[in-house]
Nucleic acid binder design. Structure first.
Lengths: 228, 228
DNA sequence: TGTACATCAGTGAACGCGCGTTCACTGATGTAC
DNA sequence: TGTACATCAGTGAACGCGCGTTCACTGATGTAC
């Protein structure tokens, strides 16, 4: 029985590692394993920098290897493929973005103020990390492979940040309705931020953008209040 | 003087044609010119169909030629390059989308209702023509060429649809503020529709989506009223 | 500790493929006489 | 109307390039004895 359970746990761990883009972390000696991890980090750093500088479309394996100071082939010792690497970068971005939203969500106040704060924090993060943030939404898997589940979950988890204040604001909603509404509210903010920052349309003054976002958050929150 | 003016007008006409993606419409005889135009249309039709079926990413010159029933090279007799062809498709999409919005905008009612109607029409069009609509925002010019001005103007013109009801709702705003606000309001709707229809996140029931959109439009409109 | 051997991370040239674009050729269409 | 010639749309094989990925090789690292 013990042997039934143990290997399965290992399987899960390995599978999760793989799903998140890591190759068999392979090194048998600790030294090797450390180098392995270091190279992974170096490549992720390089990719992050390049994406921040020129965006996802300009991201090439050769540039990454050069910037990380390794040979082209080494990249494939450490990542399944480029997609896995990009997913790795996006995972970091998710972490950072969620941290920013968590921080904003923790600040107290009435639900409306909290929703406002979340929208504001979202804009702040997106404006300060435009391309990295845009990459979250731009990236499609190569070929016809589907986006991994954990990625979609991660995306969905962004919406969840609005759920708590939404529930406080409008306790009538059942869980499903609240989740849907959270998604739409998040999407509205996402839209305003995305088109507001899009240089193709021409830039919008950031204070104006911020004010509109506040208006949006406040208005929708008001519109949801039982009395509204 | 005559010769000063005439050629310049021709230049402009030609330039506009080119900017919109047409090659020298070249045929010296009317018959040839007609075939030229017919081929253009056939290719645009084919591209529209393929985009509707499989999206912009899957659009290949060879497939287009085959589906339009011409040789690969003929495409380049009639369009500068693939980008020009895609811009041509998007121009059609702009036309159709604007027509839908115009129709929705003409229906009377108070400004709030008109804004609601616009958002609703936008969702309806986007849902019925997902990929074609998505292509409006997905497409980037190849290389580092900038998006042509007329395209950006066309994009901006979408926002303008909300301006009239917005002005009626909130006459205090000067023109610039109104334009900015129109853009943000449009962007919010765009965001809700885009993420609502995005299959990566998982589909949302359309009635719910529509209800949220109405909520958004109504809430923002209320929030803008001088009394709100 | 020293030596022989095995492993495997690291290397970068080469592979392979997809795909936009060109180009030498052809044949239909139009024109001049 | 008929004939010779010119033009140019139409053709699709071939070009060229970018780029992700592989693979035969090497040398450093670790292990056995």
């Amino acid at each position: 029985m013990f042997t039934e359970v143990e290997p399965r746990q290992d399987m899960n761990a390995v599978q999760e590692e793989n799903e998140r883009g890591s190759q068999n972390s392979g090194g048998h000696s600790p030294k090797t394993a450390a180098r392995h991890r270091a190279l992974r980090e170096a490549l992720l750093d390089a990719a992050e920098r390049r994406i921040a500088a020129t965006g996802l479309v300009e991201l090439k394996a050769r540039d990454l290897a050069q910037e990380a100071g390794c040979a082209l082939g080494a990249l494939y010792n450490v990542f399944e493929d480029l997609d896995a690497l990009i997913l790795g970068v996006n995972m970091r971005t998710f972490d950072a973005l969620e941290a920013a939203l968590d921080a904003a969500g923790e600040a107290g106040g009435d639900p409306v103020a909290r929703i406002e704060a979340l929208a504001d924090a979202y804009l702040t993060y997106a404006a300060a990390n435009r391309r990295r943030w845009a990459t979250l939404f731009e990236h499609r898997m190569a070929g016809d492979r589907p986006t991994p589940d954990w990625y979609r979950a991660r995306l969905a988890h962004l919406f969840a940040h609005v759920e708590a204040p939404l529930g406080a604001l409008c306790p009538v909603l059942d869980e499903a309705a609240r989740a849907c509404l959270a998604r739409s509210l998040f999407s509205a903010v996402q839209g305003v931020v995305a088109l507001g920052l899009d240089e193709k349309v021409g830039p919008m003054p950031e204070p104006t953008l911020r004010a509109h976002l506040r208006l949006l958050a406040r208005a929708m929150a008001q519109g949801l209040k039982p009395g509204g």
